[in-house]
Amino acid sequence: MLLITCPWCGPRDEIEFHSGGEAGRVRPHVPDELDDTEWANFLFMRRNEKGLRRERWVHALGCRRWFAITRDTVTHDILPDDAPSLIASDMHVDGGAR
């Protein structure tokens, strides 16, 4: 069981959260200008890091807010993070960067 620290609610059990996948994926500003390969790269391709990975979570059964953490995918350790989450590139994923 992961113990995840929500920046607003503090440390909570994993079951209160949903994994939102890789952080830092920014929706292209003008998708129409992309070719099919570039669009597939944004839509489907994943870094899938072995080791440290920046990823998004949503506190679904809590404050329902999104944030990002750094987690090791081999040890499942979550790195302490003074200012988790609120970096723009972490947050603007599916909603569209402007």
């Binding site: 069981m1 992961l2 994993e14 079951i15 949903h18 994994s19 996948g21 899938n48 072995k50 990975r53 990823e55 987690r71 995918t73 081999v74 040890t75 499942h76």
Partner: peptide
């Protein structure tokens, strides 16, 4: 399990 991992173990829930 909902998260990615290379650890060959998951969470108890």
């Amino acid at each position: 399990d909902g998260y990615t991992s290379y650890a060959q173990r998951g969470s108890f829930p």
